[in-house]
Amino acid sequence: MFSALDVDIQPGFGVGMFEIGASLWTVLDAVRRMQHAFPQVDVKYDPDASAMTPIIVHLRPHVDLLFSGKHQRLHTICIRKLRDPNPPVILRYKESVLSSSDEVLRRIGVSRIFGPTYPGDDLRYPGLWFSFDEDGIGEGRKGAHPEDKMQEVKRVFVSQKDLGKEGDALGEVSECPIMDGDIALAILKVRDGITLHFHPSTSNAAHIRIGQTTAQDLNILLGPPLRVHYKEDDRMKIHSSNPDSTRPETSYFYNFFQHGLDFLISGKDHVVRKIILHSNVPGTPLFQRYKRCNWELEGNPEDDEDDSPPRKRFYDRFETISHFLSPRQPPPSMLLDRTDDEDDITLPSSTTRLHGYDGIILEVSEASHVVSVTLF
């Protein structure tokens, strides 16, 4: 028997531990550590558009979390099955208990606590609304009786206050304080490095260059990595034309899972040798190991006065990005199965392909999504 789900509702900001604007990676990482509270977790998405699909996380039986498609930020929280006692759910607002095993939340109760609002099938307030249907959004449904004060509330929704009545339920989340310090955009330049733009938008950009930026610089710019990995995977060295590359080396990785970034750092001079950016595409072997890094690959400007060089983005298909890098036929690819060393992981599509170009490697899923980019 699991303990009751006891949460406080904050219109426009969140419910309990779930805060609007939090990243998918952060929320799932927290839920994974709380299996006693959330023993059943389902992640649903559109497999035909997995790079940009909105994602719904079901924490059965009471919580549904909707994440935006591009930035994978918590957009809407739904609390449902308010009368399901396995386990019971208690909803609070400030000092009041809205719903519990002993307290049925009804239309008249909502009006008494939150006051009047605009007419409609649901009771809608800034950043908060109450639905009297068990399932579905409720638009255009039949059988609602707004005049029935004893209607029982079946679901409670929380979203940003500026979403508005006609807001896009599948849109992106506006910048909010929980995003501060996170990477908003990473601009890639082949044979150079990356430029990182942070939340809030008034923050200064950070430039990380291959062969110049040091490990100490990374600690200053990004804080300490979540992991330092000293064992380099040497299996690719057999393909190198550089005879020195087969010699043992003490290089190490800085893993910033919280930013969707890895850096390979030379053990000799401690400068960045490679940069790896992760797209966190659902259904792929690396999903949820890294937060999504919203990257854009920048090309050369057409002339000296061109202040908007062409770019390709993480959600563009591999064929489009490949042609952007090289108009010729794509180079031969190598097959990679990241589940070879994981006996307990089975995926419908566990293999990816590595496509190498001058200064950049694309890891591509069977659905032609670029799941990671390596600059060297």
Rank of each mutant, 00 (worst) to 15 (best):
R155D: 04
A22M: 13
H369N: 04
S349T: 10
V371H: 09
P327F: 10
K81Q: 12
D180V: 00
T202C: 12
D337G: 14
I360D: 01
E363G: 07
R107I: 05
K154N: 04
P331W: 12
I56H: 03
M150T: 05
Y254S: 02
I210H: 04
Q160M: 15
P331G: 13
H207R: 09
F314V: 01
D8K: 06
A184W: 00
Q10S: 13
I194A: 13
S159N: 05
A4G: 12
T214H: 07
S241L: 15
D162P: 00
D306C: 11
R353I: 12
D133K: 11
H197P: 06
V27F: 11
I345C: 06
R73N: 00
V272D: 12
L65P: 03
T284L: 07
L105A: 14
S333L: 08
D337Y: 03
I238R: 11
L286W: 09
R106F: 09
L347H: 14
L82Y: 03
R124F: 05
K189Y: 03
K142T: 08
D8W: 01
R289V: 04
G140M: 10
Q258R: 07
G223T: 08
M150F: 07
L59W: 15
S326K: 04
K312W: 03
P332V: 13
S3G: 15
V373C: 12
I361K: 13
H62T: 01
D344H: 03
V31I: 15
R247F: 14
N86Y: 05
S251M: 07
